[in-house]
Write a protein that binds this DNA or RNA. Structure first.
Length: 563
RNA sequence: UGACCCAUGGUGUAAUUGGUAACACGUCUGAUUUUGGUUCAGAAGAGUCGGGGUUCGAGCCCCUGUGGGUCAACCA
């Protein structure tokens, strides 16, 4: 039955899978599939990278191939080992492995140098002595062809000599570059004699001061693919115009039938979320956030600390798909993915964000009962826990109203509610302070309504969570409205990320009370506080205090109704 | 006033490659429920950017227009 359904409903493939299967069918590259994930170690990975990671590793997995991890470290001025380590950690956290295939573009500096020399010898590259301004001035515009550099037809010997001397440290940064000799009139700007090597005096995090010249992205990426035997070089849409140049270099390099192929897909955009690495770096450097792993950040480590599971992120990526459309994905889909996952795995516990004391006047003073409660009603294998109950408890302030509107199902004078896992109680009155604030709610309980008791199936309008005042643990809770503010920066061009990370998106609640069963729960323990939402214990806890980050809220139709 | 890419419910994707628009999220009902959660049942919502053409038949092919994106870093 199930099988026939699967047969009738074939998995639809995205265009990249189709392209790969076509290549496979045509026997290209000997039927090999080999991809790579090529981050530049200049920042932390964010959820946008997760989309690329899932594709690169996913395609290799699906088609019995391999996926390399390759750090695209051709610009020492921006890169650092700190980032290398975090990137590796995040990929593994997502559940992928590159096995022993950890590579660096800088591994190929020697080969790249030789290839450049070979291009010079073939008259396909030359040293240009002009300034950056002069070169860009000659580039022409998108509608007008460029003009040729006066150095374009230097002799091979002179080019060779100059290129060697560039790498000896004889010339200043910016004084000379090596350019590919292609076509200054090409309608594609990238083909107008692109710069392929520049002089940089910053020491490289891996090769130190060995090199004085460094290859540009276009002169490193495709060749690195070629050196590694990559068959499918998957990248984002903005590299589409680079493809002719990618192919041009491969043409000059290849010696047999093997050739890597670049395929572009749409990058991940999320509503209300700033995704630019440069802007995220600003937030970190200016201490607007506590670090790359601040739970408000869309970085993988930020999401992790916020309580997102790797499964939920992979599921989300799966849901949004791969196309060539510049899409903006709604965060609600991400939130759905984490809710779906946590709903299955997170144990339910009681917690009270804004405590309101309830005194059960007919409950004996000093007595304590341990209520046995299912950790997850949908999954009995998660067991039960004992929650202490006593005369004085806390409930959520929001769960009591002195003058309730119509259809308010919770506690109010004269109204009955069930305390989940315990008794049905009825409110008889309140005690107010001099200024009229409600300090205590006075209730009576019905012993026969204890969970499992004779009258336990009596229907009441609402069920509240609660925490015994004497047993409750202090906690600090951080609520995040969204990753960023209500205004949607994803549609804006050059936004200042700070403007969108408004302080209102984070509120820190102290004086919160949680169930004693939470004592000693380690960092990144994910729980669902009944009626409040899904939370994650933070490793940033201070001694003696439990700190929770809200992962995502519950769907709350009552709140929605009353907006 | 160029090259390349893109256009399907509010959002993201599908459509056996030319056979009469499907799925998920979101939204809205209703039922169950010791979480106003979950689960379950159901509904509304696009006729596929416009205009031509080919065809018995077009979301898929062709032409043309419109709209959007990318490209003129010694960044990746």
């Amino acid at each position: 039955m199930k099988e026939s359904e699967e047969i009738n409903k074939p998995e639809s493939q995205h265009f990249i899978e189709q392209a790969i299967e076509k290549d496979l069918a045509e026997g290209r590259n000997g039927g090999r599939i080999h991809t790579r994930f090529p981050p530049e170690p200049n920042g932390y990975l964010h959820i946008g990278h997760a989309k690329a990671i899932c594709l690169d590793f996913g395609m290799a997995e699906k088609y019995g191939g391999k996926c390399n991890l390759r750090f695209d470290d051709t610009n020492p001025t921006k890169e650092d080992v700190e980032y290398v380590d975090s990137i590796k950690e995040d990929i593994q956290w997502l559940g992928f492995t590159w096995e022993e295939r950890e590579f660096y573009a800088s591994d190929y500096f020697g080969k790249l140098w030789e290839f450049a020399v070979s291009l010079i010898k073939r008259g396909l590259a030359y040293v240009d002595d002009q300034s950056a301004e002069a070169i860009s001035g000659q580039k022409g515009t998108t509608t007008q062809p460029g003009t040729e550099s006066p150095y374009r037809s230097r002799s091979i010997e002179e080019n060779l000599d100059l290129f060697y001397r560039m790498n000896e440290g004889e010339f200043e940064e910016g004084s000379r570059v090596l350019r590919a000799r292609i076509d200054m009139a090409s309608p594609n700007m990238h083909m107008r004699d692109p710069i392929i090597y520049r002089i940089l005096n910053t020491p490289h995090h891996r090769t130190g001061t060995k090199w004085k010249v460094y290859p540009m992205y276009d002169f490193a990426h495709g060749q690195s693919d070629y050196f590694e035997g990559i068959t499918h070089s998957l990248c984002t849409l903005e590299f589409e115009v680079h493809r002719p140049l990618y192919d041009w270099f491969i043409d000059q390099l290849k010696t047999d039938d093997y050739r890597p192929r670049q395929i572009e897909f749409n990058r991940l955009n999320l509503t209300y979320t700033v995704m630019s690495k440069r802007k995220l770096l600003e937030l970190v450097k200016d201490n607007v956030v506590s670090g790359w792993d601040d739970p408000r950040m869309p970085t993988l480590c930020g999401l992790r600390r916020r309580g997102y599971t790797p499964e939920s992120i992979r599921r989300f990526v799966d849901l949004i798909g791969y196309t060539k459309v510049e899409a903006i994905n709604d965060v609600s889909l991400l939130e759905y993915a984490i809710r779906e996952d946590l709903n299955k795995r997170a144990p339910r516990v009681f917690g009270v964000l804004n405590p309101l004391k309830v005194i059960i006047t007919n409950y004996p003073e000093g007595e304590t009962e341990n209520m046995e409660i299912l950790n997850n009603p949908e999954d009995e294998t998660q067991g039960k826990r004992l929650v202490p109950f006593s005369r004085e408890i806390f409930i959520e302030k929001e769960d009591f109203m002195e003058n309730p509107p119509h259809k308010f199902f919770r506690l109010a004078p004269g109204q009955e509610v069930r305390l989940k896992g315990a008794y049905i109680i009825k409110c008889n009155g309140v005690k107010k302070s001099d200024v009229g604030e409600i300090e205590e709610v006075h209730c009576t309980m019905d012993p026969a309504t204890r969970s499992g008791g004779p009258d336990s199936d009596r229907k009441v309008k609402g069920t509240l969570h609660w925490v015994s005042a004497a047993h409750a643990l202090d906690a600090e809770v951080r609520l995040y409205d969204r990753l960023f503010s209500d205004e949607d920066p994803s549609g804006h061009k050059d936004v200042d990320a700070r403007e969108f990370l408004n302080p209102g998106s984070l509120s820190v609640l102290t004086g919160c009370k949680v169930e004693p069963s939470l004592a000693g729960s380690g960092p990144l323990t994910r729980v669902q506080f009944q009626r409040i939402g899904y939370f994650c214990t933070d490793y940033d806890s201070r001694p003696g205090k439990l700190v929770f980050n809200r992962t995502v809220g519950l769907k709350d139709s009552w709140a929605k109704q009353n907006k």
